[in-house]
């Protein structure tokens, strides 16, 4: 399959400037105003609606982008799995606005010569690209999302991984004050994900800081998250705080929760069913009928199949 060049559309043009979001912000502000008027005091620690969500102005296009039509903004930001904020799909949109994303640092450490900590301001100033990727959830639904970010390999090269760096572990944020879900042991917090070093260095693997040309909303993993488009969505950890280069294969949150259902690799694969449901087809959000066949490696096989040459994908699911 040829990866076609996307249409030269500015991210700002495909962004359906979310009236929806503005309404919510308006209502929040109105409610806050009412409380303010009633109590006569202001609480600065309460996270205010992010009316000034940063817009990324100079974002390059990428040959890796799909030309498929992105899923509507309201669905991308309204139907999320982010268990730290609750297990309902609507919970993240409701509660992730409280996520504290400043100050924010990402520590890159472990098996490397120059470990260091990156501030979020520094990360969003890097040359950014738009990557319109398919996202396939292990729950058999999918979306098309225009991410804004940069290749993870660029960051990893800067810390100079040693020969011992065989895997990369991603540790995500735990904010007990803002994340109601982490008080419930649904998963072993913090949520940890992992990749093999060659998967992490692959040009398709990115750290995203935005969607639709603007900064990531909390529910999508603000302020910086992993995106690995050929794997099930849960591999793409949100709100990353630490990236560790390690010698041993990390134990991921879902592996710990249910090792027979969620493997380390978790490559999108219609031939390997989840023990409790089929992975042969998927429902493209918000379509009614689920008859879209799922493609191996989520359609990125031309780029990534080589990483798994000779591997039994049923065994290493």
């Amino acid at each position: 399959m040829l990866i076609k060049r996307p249409l030269d559309v500015l991210p700002s043009e495909i962004t359906p400037q979310p009236v929806y979001n503005r309404r919510r912000e308006f209502m929040k502000a109105a409610a806050a105003g009412a409380i303010l008027a009633a109590t006569g005091c202001s609480d600065d620690t309460e996270s205010a609606p992010d009316a000034t969500r940063e817009k990324f102005t100079s974002v390059a296009t990428s040959r890796f982008s799909t030309v498929e039509k992105p899923t509507e903004y309201k669905h991308v930001t309204g139907y999320n799995n982010y268990y730290e904020f609750g297990t309902e799909k609507s919970d993240p949109a409701l509660y992730a606005g409280h996520l504290k994303t400043r100050p924010w640092t990402v520590s890159v450490e472990g098996e490397c010569l120059k470990p260091r900590t990156f501030g979020i301001e520094e990360l969003i100033k890097r040359p950014l690209e738009e990557r319109v990727y398919r996202l396939r959830c292990v729950e058999a639904w999918s979306m098309v999302i225009p991410w804004v970010g940069f290749e993870l390999n660029a960051l990893l090269k800067e810390v100079e991984p040693t020969g011992n760096a065989k895997f990369v572990e991603f540790v995500t944020a735990v904010q007990p004050d803002t994340m109601q879900g982490v008080h419930v042991p649904v998963l072993d917090w913090p949520y940890v994900e992992g990749l093999r070093i060659d998967e992490a260095m692959h040009p398709l693997t990115i750290l995203a800081v935005g969607i639709f040309g603007e900064a990531l909303p909390g529910q999508n993993g603000a302020p910086v998250r992993l995106v690995v488009p050929w794997k099930y969505g849960f591999k793409s950890g949100k709100s990353i705080v630490k990236i560790r280069l390690v010698a041993q294969q990390p134990r991921t949150a879902w592996e710990k929760a249910s090792p027979t259902e969620y493997g380390f690799y978790s490559n999108v694969n219609p031939n390997v069913d989840h023990p409790r449901w089929s992975q042969e087809t998927e429902r493209r959000i918000p379509e009614f009928f689920s008859r879209r066949p799922t493609v191996i490696f989520n359609g990125y096989g031309d780029q990534v199949a080589g990483l798994y040459a000779g591997m039994d994908l049923k065994k290493y699911f």
């Binding site: 139907y79 918000p286 379509e287 009614f288």
Partner: peptide, 15 residues
């Protein structure tokens, strides 16, 4: 909702 207002059923109306 399914016939006239599928949006009211969220991002995954079928589910």
């Amino acid at each position: 909702s399914a016939v006239w207002f599928p949006d009211a059923l969220g991002a995954n109306p079928a589910e």
